[in-house]
Design a binder for these strands. Structure first.
Length: 632
RNA sequence: GCUCAUAUAGCUCAGUCGGUAGAGCACUUCCUUGGUAAGGAAGAGGUCAGGCGUUCGAAUCGCCUUAUGAGCACCA
């Protein structure tokens, strides 16, 4: 005789086992119609789920967060059914709900074409219209194996054999003639999916996410509770694409990407101005934080990379070069070995520690061609790198300082919530487990003492040490690692560096690798999308454009431009034979923060008429007054 | 690197059935001297990514290479 407790604390007594749907019906027929699933003691279940003992129950309707995930999972099933109806012989594999949608991976010889996707979507709508009840069935392992073997669904058989632990029940969900192995839960019927979905694109994906396996065809879709929300989502994507840094980079004449140098950046004057502003900013912050700056060679002998372990562990990503005399050099993929050589020169005392050595080094990595992506993934990039040499006792505090610094710096650019990832020892690594224990502990302790949340990524650390990564998100929701902090006792050992302690003995220092922007190229790209090209005044490559109305004012405009430049303002003049409206439009599209218009009146009054990028008329003012305003 | 797609003027893009290349913007020149998001006219601009093939004939069809895009794998 189950007693049901609802979320508002009220109780309902039933004299026999009841389903979620029964309970909803008991509360009201409207609710019953809206019921999609339920939650029993916090566990998401089907609407038909039978409750036999006392439980806390919540009815899930389309208003609940959880419903969206069910909806998307259903959409994946409906899509798989559509595909198998349209293209017999296609095998199904897995099809989960994901952020903003769903996908399903199929095994089929022939590739799906864009036209196929249209057909699939049509068939899905038809299946929704059929409003097939979605029913759960439990099978024993042998029956399940036989059914899927007979159907020729070899991937499903593999899932039964390898993914479902012996003893677990195997459930299938049936909608009409079609069914799939699935843990569930699902919506009551295909009709509940509605029409707020869209088949988006097809792409390859490896079976089990392993590049050694065969490639399947993954069809992505998006699904929402209704048509309106679908449209809103599609609109959001369109808007995000307008912010694409590759597009803005061309429009705003910031940089050039060229076929002759894949994965490499040509910086136009405006882009390079901004790039250098970022460097200036970083130099100032580092100087205040007690860093010194050095510079190391780009090309170094192979033996150095053998000592560091890169030759063995990182070779496939390295550009190497052979000279006439057959000596092999490598372009540095990282700055650390060069830094260690500098530390190793001369005797270091404990008094020198912590030694924070920064370097704006350009590193070269042969990235897989398919990974290249605008400024966000390139083969040659500038790191705001630093290596902190310290004692083991100092290590944790240094980590804390770095984390505090990086988060503070991101705030200056408006990045308030930053995801921190923690990656520990990878398979391919150097150094003993005992050392790795201490290094991983230091990072975790630093985070804990700062009360910072982080996500763990087991086995994803660098080959020489565990790392923290600071992740920012781009315009269309892709995450990009920017800053990083790695602790390392291995390179110091490989290069046998030491310092002299108070007791006169030599000890090995710990080394921290850290980058705050990470890659300046990537950070640039993310900023470009983040600000949609409307950089804050202090970063804008051109801060003000002075423009004349007729040729008569040209000499005065040039004078104003000169005055502004003398005051350290990045100003340009536009003396072209165009109407002022045309010039305003053009410089607005170029995201110039201030447009300064000069006509006869301004020449007369020795002033400028100031217009902001937002279209606001700030009135006429003297040049000095404008400079004052800009400086605030 | 893998799968699929794409590559035409500086940019954004048309180009039908295989018959020898087009628009808008930008650019140059001229006219216009106009007060806050596009004034007008004329002109120039192309090895249709590169290569090989099919064909009387290829931007168009096929194959290869390169680059780019989406995703996967890899990674700052």
């Amino acid at each position: 005789m189950p007693q049901i407790t609802l979320p508002d604390g009220s109780h309902r007594q039933f004299d026999q086992a009841v389903s979620i749907m029964d309970i909803a019906g008991d509360i009201g027929p409207g609710l019953a119609r809206a019921t999609l699933a339920g939650k029993v003691d916090g566990q998401l279940v089907d609407a038909t789920y039978l409750i036999e003992t006392d439980a806390d129950v919540a009815i899930v309707t389309s208003r609940d967060e959880e419903a969206l995930e069910l909806l998307r999972h259903d959409a994946a099933h409906v899509m798989a059914q559509a595909v198998q109806e349209l293209y017999p012989g296609t095998q199904v594999t897995i099809g989960p709900a994901i952020e903003e949608g769903f996908y399903y991976d199929f095994a089929r010889e022939e590739p799906f074409t864009p036209e196929d996707l249209v057909e699939i979507e049509k068939r899905m709508l038809e299946i929704v219209k059929r409003d097939l009840p979605i029913e759960r069935e439990v099978l024993d392992r042998e029956t399940a194996r036989k059914i899927f073997t007979d159907l020729g669904e070899h991937y499903k058989v593999e899932i039964i054999d390898q993914n479902i632990p012996e003893g677990d029940e195997i459930s299938i969900y049936r909608q009409g003639d079609w069914f799939d192995i699935c843990r569930g839960p699902h919506l009551p019927s295909t009709g509940k999916l509605g029409n707020g979905f869209k088949v988006m694109k097809v792409a390859g994906a490896y079976w089990r996410g392993d590049s050694r396996n065969e490639m399947l065809q993954r069809i992505y879709g998006t699904a929402w509770p209704d048509r309106k929300q679908l449209k809103a989502y599609l609109h959001r994507i369109e808007e995000a694409e307008k912010r694409d840094h590759r597009k803005l980079g061309r429009q705003l004449e910031l940089f050039l990407l060229h076929e002759e140098a894949p994965g490499s950046v040509f910086w136009h004057p405006k882009g390079w101005t901004l790039f250098n502003l970022l460097i200036n900013y970083m130099r100032k912050r580092q100087d205040e934080a007690g860093y010194v700056e050095v510079n190391t060679p780009d090309v170094m002998d192979r033996s150095l990379w053998e000592t560091s372990g890169h030759w063995e562990n990182y070779r496939e990503h390295m550009f190497s070069t052979q000279t006439e005399d057959e000596r092999v050099f490598a372009l540095k993929p990282m700055n650390c070995p060069g830094s260690v050589l500098m530390f190793a020169q001369g005797l270091k005392s404990y008094r020198d520690l912590p030694l924070r050595m920064a370097e704006l080094g350009k590193v070269h990595r042969y990235e897989p061609s398919g990974a290249l992506h605008g400024l966000l993934r390139v083969r040659h990039f500038t790191q705001d790198d630093a290596h902190v040499y310290c004692t083991e006792e100092q290590m944790e505090q240094e980590c804390i300082d770095v984390i505090a610094l990086v988060l503070d710096i991101y705030k200056d650019f408006g990045f308030e919530d930053v995801v921190i990832k923690f990656s520990d020892r990878p398979q391919n690594r150097i150094g003993s487990d005992e050392i790795w224990d201490r290094l991983e502990g230091a990072l975790i302790n630093a985070l804990d003492s700062m009360n910072l949340d982080y996500k763990s990524f087991p086995g994803e650390g660098a080959f020489y040490g565990p790392k923290l990564e600071f992740v920012l998100r781009d315009a269309i929701g892709r995450d990009w690692q920017c800053g990083t902090l790695q602790v390392d006792m291995n390179l110091p050992e490989r290069f046998d560096i030491s310092y002299v302690a108070e007791d006169g003995n030599r000890y090995r220092p710990v080394m921290l690798h850290r980058a705050l922007f990470g890659s300046l190229e990537r950070f640039f790209g993310i900023l470009l999308e983040h600000y949609e090209g409307k950089f804050p005044l202090w970063l804008a490559p051109v801060q003000a454009v002075v423009m004349n109305i007729t040729d008569k004012q040209a000499p005065y405009v040039e004078k104003v431009e000169k005055m502004l430049k003398n005051q350290g303002i990045r100003a340009q003049s536009d003396l072209r034979n165009e109407k002022v409206g045309f010039k305003i439009r053009e410089h607005t599209l170029q995201r110039i923060p201030y447009m300064l218009v000069v006509g006869d009146r301004e020449v007369e009054e020795e002033s400028i008429a100031v217009r902001s990028l937002g279209g606001e008329d700030l009135g006429s003012m003297a040049v000095g007054q404008f400079v004052q305003m800009v400086r605030q």
